[in-house]
């Protein structure tokens, strides 16, 4: 199970949890599983998020691999100048 850390503002969509455990092999599967487990997160993901996997910031790389011991954080969407 991949442990996904959410930011605390999202707790109200996940019954108070800020870590969600999911079955996923890629970032894309993880996003899908997140919304399936907590449909309240759908607008969050649609509005745009970034994902950090083992310290690497991933913008839209849905194909990027995640494993059970990956450190995964859902982060706010970022944009540079």
């Amino acid at each position: 199970m991949v442990k996904v850390h959410l930011w605390s503002g999202l707790r109200r969509f996940t019954d108070g949890a800020d870590v969600v455990e999911l079955e996923a092999k890629t970032v894309g599967e993880m996003m899908k599983a997140l919304v399936e487990a907590h449909p309240g997160l759908d607008p969050v993901i649609k509005a745009g998020v970034s994902v950090s996997v083992d310290g690497k910031l991933i913008a839209r790389g849905l194909h990027e691999q995640v494993s059970d011991d990956s450190e995964v954080f859902l982060l706010r969407q970022l944009k540079g100048g």
Binding site: W7, S8, G9, P43, V44, A47
Partner: peptide
């Protein structure tokens, strides 16, 4: 305003973010 804004804030608040550890 989007999903993130709690009720009771001014309608000019478009997004609200909260996190920490």
């Amino acid at each position: 305003a989007d999903y993130s804004v709690p009720e009771g804030l001014h309608p000019n608040v478009m997004r609200y973010i909260e996190y920490g550890h």
